[in-house]
Write a protein that binds this DNA or RNA. Structure first.
Lengths: 210, 210
DNA sequence: TGTACATCAGTGAACGCGCGTTCACTGATGTAC
DNA sequence: TGTACATCAGTGAACGCGCGTTCACTGATGTAC
């Protein structure tokens, strides 16, 4: 049965939100269209009215999950511009490890992305690049031979690996899992020149990163 | 039809090897028992004669993939004890990114592990811990506030994230993918005190890491 | 060493199930008059 | 404003397919005599 345009748009948003949450929790390959539709209060037929395929929905869910993640972080900081400490504390933490549903979607699906549609991997690449810009803008000075950009890229890669490793070890070796988070948090603070930010740059314009 | 004990053991090894390769290429959830059995030249019934479940096979494939990866690296170095440069050049490279089938299984399945049987995640945790010991043993001195153990953990986490990110971005932004590898390789060299190893320790005893 | 037979590795049909996707249909919406 | 009807968002049955797992059966192995 037909439905108002507003209702239809709301349904679309519900599908994207449900897909994002479930993909983060169980992986993109671990969730079916039936579960996504049901979680959004619809049938799978409605999903195919809104999206041409599961892959297209996955791409949109990834893109919007990246936006939502960033919004969640800034709002937790009272809306002020986050600095390096804010980023690292938020990204490399037991909270991020334990909250699959609400966490960063790039982290949750990292090793799965390479096997998805090119639309999905393009979203990942864009999100990664934006996050790199955001981190680069808040880096402090260090004596590193690596330039700011290189240090920013390394910080994001390390964050992704740290959360993946912390999650993978959480059940069988919880102490190791915590140790990984503490170690990476500390080392990335040093790489980033934490606390040595003399001139704070503003975040780059354009879409918000992670 | 029954088969000699030697043949049966050979078949078991073929299953483990095929499973390891296919899991790395397509992910644990992305490969079925039929494909594994076929690749090993058997039927799925034979697989269930050797292993109680797909998960049990996955655990064994992961454990033995970690051993094989280490052997491949040391043999490439002519059998001598690898140093930090050897580890980093081998692990953070286009070769590692592009060779899913032959690469490190911890890297290939990182974000999938947390959703597998506890036997699988236990193998991952053991492999991670062993690799941390191996890296710690070849670290150079730095002025870092983080101790050797923390730097070793951070290096492995960063390596996992770097390969995952480089693979995820390879199709849509190949330049970014290469940039990630170069950046992480350089920054990890600095973290590890590359080239500043005064007293070289031997690798720890016990099973070989990665 | 030669024969009889119990063992058991491997085969392949079958199980129920969930997958992604299609499509004929329903019926409220929203437009044309 | 009131009526007639085209539009189209959403439904749910059905599609072919591959999944992990089970099991009755086969027939070569390897042992007991």
């Amino acid at each position: 049965m037909k439905v108002t345009k507003e209702k239809a748009a709301e349904h679309r948003r519900a599908l994207v939100r449900a897909a994002g949450r479930l993909f983060r929790e169980r992986g993109i390959e671990g969730v079916g269209v039936a579960a996504i539709s049901k979680a959004a209060g619809l049938t799978h037929g409605a999903l195919y009215g809104q999206f041409p395929s599961k892959g297209a929905l996955a791409a949109e869910a990834l893109a919007q999950g990246i936006k939502r993640g960033y919004a969640a972080m800034t709002s937790a900081k009272g809306g002020r511009e986050p600095d390096l400490t804010d980023y690292l504390d938020f990204l490399i933490s037991p909270y991020q490890r334990d909250n699959l549903a609400g966490g960063c979607p790039m982290t949750a699906s990292a090793s799965e992305i390479a096997r998805q549609d090119e639309t999905v991997s393009a979203c990942f690449a864009d999100g990664f690049a934006e996050m790199a810009d955001a981190i680069e803008a808040v880096l402090g000075e260090t004596k590193s031979g690596a330039d700011r950009r290189q240090r920013a890229l390394a910080i994001i890669a390390a964050e992704i690996g740290a959360i993946a490793a912390a999650r993978a070890t959480a059940k069988s070796q919880p102490d190791l899992s915590n140790e990984i988070l503490i170690a990476v948090r500390r080392v990335l603070g040093e790489i980033g020149g934490e606390g040595r930010t003399s001139k704070r740059k503003a975040a780059p314009s354009g879409r918000p990163p992670m």
